[in-house]
Design a protein around this nucleic acid. Structure first.
Lengths: 257, 257
DNA sequence: CGAGTACTTGACCCAGATCAAGCCATGTGG
DNA sequence: CCACATGGCTTGATCTGGGTCAAGTACTCG
């Protein structure tokens, strides 16, 4: 973790309070855990933040000690390739995990940066691991999250058109926001166009043009960062609704926990 | 599982023998397990196969009951998109796992087909899951494999040129074969060009042209399915050696177990 | 040996990148 | 409160990597 320690002081002072707010109950691990188990889990959860926009939670190459669950706010994870270009791996909003790709190499394979004021739960991996042995459900839950992320990334790696990728992105973002209690119709893009473009391996200009086109086709209404989905079903179909699988598969689009 | 039962008879007759050959010891789970733990694990491993070329191990939409470790031979996993085009997700050779992306949706998200005569261990997931609680090391091992696969897929999803993707593919294939005791210099492509192309989201023609170009540049020597790597380092560099990370990261390119 | 399939090679085309202005919202300092 | 800088976004013009189409060539297997 490579943040300067200026706000570490703050975070320490707020740790207790934050931890009380953390409420794994509805954010990080809303699965069938007993209250007792939840308490044991909460016992080992630390806290980072609040991070301000632009702050890094971790950087590529940092030692891997914990996985992070976003409590509020949003992160992007990205890598920098040898030519210096940034590639955005994903966006992580409240209730979603970041840092899972670090388990194998035992160091962070990407950097995580706050897109807005953000607070996270830090779950020390070593202890999570041992706890997962005891708490029935936690282990399988972790595996499921990883598996889901894998499916989503594989879908992204497939050979779709720019239109399909952007439509799919908007649709899946809407579903994810819906799961968090936000409107599925009216979304606030908490990331700049450049990051969406990078994530979908497009040029910023292409994202801009496609949004304009979707609007002109009556699929969405764009107003700066505010997007209204006028025809979510059309977007879903455009977005290469994952073949064969039912509507459930569309959920596969991010590792919410 | 949707194979016709014609060879199921064969496979049952060979099950005992195959299971003895399975030797999780050096294939499926070469981690720090005690002999006793290994025996418990082997006790619950079933067997499928031998599969002939073209046979399916499972198909998209099949219920998820087991993950599969390739004992010998090779598989490809793929999906069919709504336009009927096939997308190859990955290739799985001896010692590697297939079916991990099914954990989340609880049904297979892709189909797995043998590229040659192939035999696999079938590890019933329900029991693996409970066993992982007891056997220290198995749980974290599963998580690592998933994490590794995630990293590899994310790398594939990044915005690289055709040249970079193919060079990276050849290099990583060579490393994987090396780990299995095969030569790293002389590789046998056990899959058709079409499948390589689909996996890397290229046209078959592009793969063909690039192989010709690599050869003419003195990087490789191509003779049908036989490829000799004359300059592995050059390939590694072309292949967008994962930024920042050490040589270890290059291993990240498939979920060997 | 013939038929089918995999692979190669060439000619042409197009989705989306890149380059180039301009626009518009938010500062920021005077 | 206004100039004006700055960075995000849009829109148009042009270019190009790699796709598509087409025509072979070469294994492979019955």
């Amino acid at each position: 973790m490579s943040d300067n320690s200026s706000d570490k002081v703050i975070s320490i002072s707020r740790l207790r309070q934050a931890c009380r707010n953390c409420s794994l109950r509805d954010l990080c691990l809303p699965m069938g855990l007993s209250n007792e188990d939840l308490q044991r889990l909460e016992g080992l959860v630390g806290s980072r933040g609040p991070l301000r926009r632009g702050d890094h939670l971790f950087r590529e190459g940092d030692g891997f000690h914990a996985i992070y669950a976003v409590r509020y706010g949003a992160l992007k994870t990205y890598t920098i390739d040898d030519e210096g270009r940034e590639h955005v791996l994903g966006f992580h909003m409240a209730g979603e995990l970041a840092g899972l790709d670090a388990i194998y190499p035992a160091e962070h394979a990407c950097s995580a940066q706050a897109l807005q004021a953000t607070s996270v739960c830090a779950v020390p991996f070593a202890r999570l691991e041992s706890l997962a042995r005891d708490i029935s459900g936690l282990q399988i839950h972790l595996l499921r999250v990883l598996s889901k992320e894998l499916g989503a990334t594989a879908h992204l790696a497939a050979d779709h058109t720019a239109e399909q990728r952007l439509a799919g992105f908007l649709y899946s973002l809407s579903r994810r926001l819906g799961l968090r209690g936000y409107s599925e119709r009216e979304l606030h893009l908490f990331m700049p166009r450049r990051d969406i473009a990078s994530h979908l391996r497009l040029a910023t200009e292409t994202v801009s043009r496609l949004l304009a086109r979707f609007q002109q086709q009556g699929l969405i209404k764009v107003s700066r960062k505010h997007i209204e989905l006028l025809d979510p079903e059309a977007l879903r179909h455009l977005g290469g609704a994952m073949a064969g699988a039912g509507p459930e598969a569309a959920e596969r689009c991010r590792g919410d926990l």
